[in-house]
């Protein structure tokens, strides 16, 4: 372990640099392909309306004390009554997103396109790297690291005696895969970055259920105590005027 491994410069020229360049090129290509495949999705009126209802109900809850009690009660009834209140979701009608997905083939199609544009290039490049460059020690980082980094930096090399600061080619691939985001946002513009992590977030956020938040908002409204603040304002206005006059 004490003696240094000498890395051939040919490894730099034929493994390290090509790998990085290919990763960048694939990222750019993927961006344009996904742009081609993207369909402009028309938002659904119902979903928009539900979002807006939630905003409005939230406003009501937050600023309830600023309107007279009568106005507040009328609004609360309008939102929460059991017959046709805006926030009331009839039982059984609450669609779960899975069912919604199956009922709407477009949605599934979109998901698939998104997934495909992400997974296919990744599998291909991974296979390519594995096939050509497996087992290479491609680079050495100029500072020592603890053993815990071994799995991150020396993926594909099963030698426990190699110093951790050596980076295997497969690990270099992974580092590029996750580390190039900043570069992409530079090349492709801020919001256009092929942002894998963000996409993952979107995917996990797909299970968002508007009817659930409607219900939560309804419960929130039900327990709001109306306490009109305007009488207090009157006193404060008097104080303000006194201060101005003095």
């Amino acid at each position: 372990m004490a003696e240094d491994l000498v890395l051939d410069t040919a490894i730099r020229d034929w493994v390290l640099i090509p790998l990085s360049v290919v990763m960048v090129l694939i990222g750019v290509l993927r961006y344009f392909v996904s742009k081609l495949m993207r369909t402009s999705q028309l938002p659904d009126a119902k979903i928009i309306k539900e979002g807006q209802v939630i905003i409005r109900a939230r406003n009501l809850r937050a600023a309830a004390n600023f309107i007279p009690a009568k106005a507040f009660r009328a609004r609360r009834l309008y939102y929460t009554n059991e017959d046709n209140g805006l926030l009331h979701v009839p039982k059984g009608q609450a669609q779960n997103p899975q069912a919604q997905m199956f009922s709407d083939p477009n949605m599934a199609m979109d998901m698939m396109k998104k997934n495909l544009s992400m997974i296919i290039p990744q599998t291909l490049t991974f296979a390519w790297v594995n096939f050509f460059f497996s087992g290479f020690v491609a680079a050495k980082i100029p500072f020592p690291l603890t053993q815990r980094f071994r799995s991150m930096l020396q993926n594909g090399i099963d030698l426990s005696t190699v110093d951790v600061s050596y980076v295997s080619s497969r690990s270099w691939y992974f580092l590029n895969l996750f580390g190039l985001r900043g570069l992409f946002s530079l090349i492709l513009g801020e919001e256009n970055a092929t942002d894998d992590t963000q996409r993952m977030m979107q995917m996990s956020g797909f299970g968002f259920d508007p009817s659930k938040s409607l219900g939560a908002e309804k419960d929130g409204l039900d327990i709001v105590q109306h306490d009109w603040v305007l009488p207090k304002f009157e006193e404060r206005a008097e104080a303000v005027l006194r201060k101005r006059l003095s």
Partner: peptide, 16 residues
């Protein structure tokens, strides 16, 4: 009476 209260709150919010 309500209107008066809202005028008062306007005064409060605009500093009179």
């Amino acid at each position: 009476q309500t209107a008066k209260k809202y005028y008062a709150s306007t005064i409060e919010l605009t500093g009179g």
